[in-house]
């Protein structure tokens, strides 16, 4: 399989990475050179093989339902590039 420019543009949009038109071509080329190599995976027979999800050494551990975190607004907001009072801010979103 190989990518065309439109696909790269769509992928970049999905990943929210702004690509200049000038970068589009080089990026597509780079991805295609990797994809060409990756395609050798097609030759492996995986009939009846379950996918390995994580390393599955144990079953999921569960925590008790207790409130023992949060209440650290100042520390959190101090890391933000922009805030307004107790809030994070973003350009106005219209729904």
């Amino acid at each position: 399989m190989s990518l065309d420019l439109a696909t790269t543009r769509r992928i970049a949009k999905l990943a929210r990475i702004g690509l200049e038109d000038a970068e589009l071509e080089a990026t597509t080329q780079k991805l295609n050179s990797i994809l060409g190599w990756i395609d050798q995976l097609a030759e492996v027979n995986v009939d009846g093989v379950p996918p390995m999800v994580g390393t599955e050494t144990e079953a999921l551990r569960q925590r008790e339902d207790v409130v023992n975190d949060g209440n650290c607004r100042d520390a959190l907001l101090a890391c933000a590039p922009e805030t307004a009072g107790p809030f994070y801010t973003v350009p106005k979103v219209v729904e």
Binding site: T8, I11, V46, P50, P51
Partner: peptide
């Protein structure tokens, strides 16, 4: 480019051929 590659292999229509396949090979 790794983010873009990862986005591509998970995207609709490619998941089975790439990601799922790779996870099965991982089992092997």
């Amino acid at each position: 480019s790794r983010i873009l590659m990862g986005t591509y292999v998970l995207s609709a229509g490619y998941y089975d051929a790439y990601y799922l396949k790779a996870q099965k090979v991982r089992t092997l």
